[in-house]
Design a protein around this nucleic acid. Structure first.
Lengths: 249, 249
DNA sequence: TAGTGGTCTAGACCACATG
DNA sequence: ATGTGGTCTAGACCACTAT
């Protein structure tokens, strides 16, 4: 029996989070200093199954590399260029940013959804006033911001809009928790656009300079859009990076 | 003890192949007629672990969908384009374009890797002359091109460079086939950059206009970069979209 | 040879969906 | 109430790498 606290979070996810944090915090002296499965089993008091599930997650994120006989090594964390990299995997952690960045939101007035976002959704079911948030993400060793994000909640969720912690977890996690409706699917649209006046001021870049715009729609299981967001990133100091594992023979 | 034949192929892969064949052969009357885990354990005489590993593979291919409590269902065949199976995981569609586009390459002279790509790789092991290809992708109902792609093969693969079908399958699939070395991992970097002179001419966009640049590295199992490519897309008529299925915590 | 990760078994309890 | 898939344990043997 473990502690009596009712953690509904699987152990292998907790372990994966813990190990990811350690890797990103450079808690290991060298890439080959990552613990073996047996060591992790003992250190955390879990079975090999749990350890392997956690390591499978980290591997699919590209954080570690495993070879039979050799061991587990940390993937080149450094060797990255000037731009900030956002590692993402095919599962839940996709929408998280590097751990040394942070964003704080401010609440804006509710308003009809901007036209560009309405068309992104396919034009349907966009009626009503959507509670609006605006945030600027900073970090990554650069004083200048790396993102301007505008997010909108579905009018049905207006009741929880005031209970959002503006400096807390990601918006969509809070939306899930406060509304009790899990996010089932995220669609994402990435495009290069010129910086508008608003964006150029917020990001400290010239007007019309290349900007990476990421539009995201957060759907529940029935397809309804609970949240929609638009993020603008400066082209010269932000890269959206992902990796894909291909299964061998 | 199983049959005496020394099958070094894991059971869960054999099972996955068998089930994939059945699904593609429409051996199941309805999408919800897929067997349960318990049925598969009994039918094939394997443990639940083996069954789940097999189903995990099929799920990551997008072939089946699983829900706790409900069961396993077969995904609509509409999601599948060609008759060929794609070893790439669910995120693998990321590398595919709309099928109403096409690209033809031309062979360029082998040359040292451009600096921007060297730094993308981390700077190591980029020495030598890399066989080079250049292609322009058209389609999508617009007469103007939607991409300029430059691709480079590792100098070790110079021998197969002349056997590439310039109008055929994707380059990396041909590289896999001709070299016999499977691609194990793809890393991808998306950034907004201003159009260079070369890019602006090829895409028929103004110089310095926002352009979506996608850098891809194709690694083999040992981490060597077999192919590296840079694609530039016009910001005003190209969007990179992707869908992500979220597993709720 | 010793130690690593990869595969596999036989159990168990749980969360969830459906009747 | 039943059955589903999700999590987890404690073992085992094997293939591979390094020494």
């Amino acid at each position: 029996m473990t502690a009596a606290t009712a953690t509904r979070r699987p152990r292998y996810r907790v372990l994966a989070d813990e190990l990811r944090r350690q890797v990103l915090d450079n808690a290991f002296a060298a890439p080959d200093q990552f613990p073996t499965e047996a060591e992790l089993c003992q250190a955390y008091g879990v079975s090999r199954f749990t350890v392997r599930e956690a390591l499978r997650a980290l591997q699919s994120e590209g954080l570690i590399k495993r070879r039979r006989g050799s061991g587990t090594t940390i993937q080149p964390a450094a060797a990255r260029g000037g731009a900030l990299h956002q590692p993402l995997s095919n599962v839940g952690e996709i929408l998280q940013y590097a751990h040394d960045t942070r964003i704080t939101f401010e609440r804006c007035k509710s308003a009809p959804l901007p036209k560009v976002l309405v068309s992104e959704m396919g034009g349907a079911a966009a009626a009503g006033d959507w509670p609006c948030f605006r945030g600027i993400r900073v970090g990554g060793g650069d004083a200048r911001p790396i993102a301007l994000t505008q997010a909108y909640l579905h009018p049905d969720l207006a009741g929880i809009a005031d209970r959002i912690d503006l400096g807390g977890e990601t918006l969509f996690r809070q939306v899930e928790e406060l509304s009790g409706i899990p996010i089932a699917r995220v669609t994402q649209d990435i495009q290069a656009v010129p910086a508008s006046g608003d964006v150029s001021r917020a990001l400290a870049v010239p007007r019309r300079s290349p900007t990476l715009r990421i539009l995201r729609c957060y759907h529940d299981a029935s397809g309804r859009v609970l949240e929609i967001s638009a993020s603008h990133h400066p082209g010269d100091r932000f890269a959206y990076s992902m990796h894909i594992e291909v299964d061998s023979p």
